[in-house]
Computed example of a mutant assay.
Amino acid sequence: MNKNDLRVIKTKQGIHQALLKLLKNKPLTHIKVTELCKEAKINRGTFYFHYEEVGDVFKQFFEEIMLDLKDSYNEPYRHHNTIDIHTLDPKTVRIFHHIKKYEDFYKIVLSQDVSTQYYYMLFDEIRSNFMTDKNTSSLGDITPYFFSYTANAIIGLIIEWYRHDFRESVDDMNELFVGIMKMKM
């Protein structure tokens, strides 16, 4: 079967949504194939056609989300190699659009009830996005610390937004982010 086949796409989306629903109540390591299949309304044969284990579902879903995060992070760079923070238009910031799109996933990842493993996976992905940033080439020995600092700053904003139950609009978060960046510089 072709991975672009609409049936495959819909089946995997259904499995991803079922996994999200189950992750709200239990850790990934306690989710069994049988209950995931039941939640997704598929049979075990369909599951095993696409995946070997439940962890593979999470890995694929996480990679999809992180690819979208990377695209969101890179959006302001689409037309420019470097960004001047003082002229950055909040409308070009797409990170918070991404978070809102995957709000259910982030509610799980940021929950105090889940393993910090999720936090570190998110941290590593955000940090790796900064590592490709052309604006940081002159930092020398402090570069890895700068990347970690910046990744945690972004995660801090996301956590605070999560604590507010994502009440603020995406546009409000973009304005807030750009305002903080201008204060920092």
Rank of each mutant, 00 (worst) to 15 (best):
residue 37 C to F: 04
residue 125 E to Q: 14
residue 83 I to F: 05
residue 62 F to M: 09
residue 149 Y to G: 08
residue 69 L to W: 13
residue 86 H to E: 11
residue 158 I to N: 00
residue 69 L to R: 06
residue 1 M to D: 10
residue 144 P to G: 02
residue 91 K to V: 15
residue 102 Y to Q: 02
residue 163 R to W: 14
residue 129 N to F: 07
residue 100 K to F: 09
residue 158 I to P: 02
residue 99 I to H: 03
residue 94 R to T: 09
residue 122 L to V: 06
residue 53 E to N: 14
residue 125 E to P: 05
residue 141 D to P: 07
residue 96 F to T: 04
residue 44 R to V: 07
residue 143 T to E: 15
residue 21 K to W: 08
residue 105 F to V: 02
residue 4 N to M: 12
residue 67 L to V: 09
residue 10 K to I: 10
residue 17 Q to N: 11
residue 25 N to H: 14
residue 56 D to K: 07
residue 115 S to E: 07
residue 80 H to K: 14
residue 77 Y to V: 03
residue 27 P to R: 15
residue 101 K to C: 00
residue 126 I to E: 00
residue 20 L to F: 09
residue 119 Y to W: 13
residue 126 I to D: 00
residue 138 S to I: 10
residue 152 N to A: 06
residue 146 F to Q: 05
residue 38 K to M: 13
residue 7 R to L: 14
residue 97 H to S: 15
residue 115 S to G: 04
residue 147 F to P: 03
residue 52 E to L: 13
residue 52 E to Q: 15
residue 68 D to M: 07
residue 112 Q to N: 12
residue 5 D to G: 03
residue 151 A to N: 02
residue 49 F to L: 14
residue 153 A to E: 11
residue 96 F to D: 02
residue 102 Y to A: 00
residue 28 L to F: 01
residue 45 G to T: 15
residue 83 I to D: 05
residue 10 K to A: 13
residue 98 H to L: 08
residue 114 V to Y: 06
residue 125 E to K: 15
residue 5 D to Y: 06
residue 72 S to P: 01
residue 46 T to D: 01
residue 135 N to M: 12
residue 47 F to T: 00
residue 13 Q to L: 10
residue 173 M to P: 02
residue 141 D to F: 14
residue 113 D to W: 11
residue 85 I to A: 07
residue 33 V to A: 06
residue 177 F to S: 06
residue 91 K to D: 11
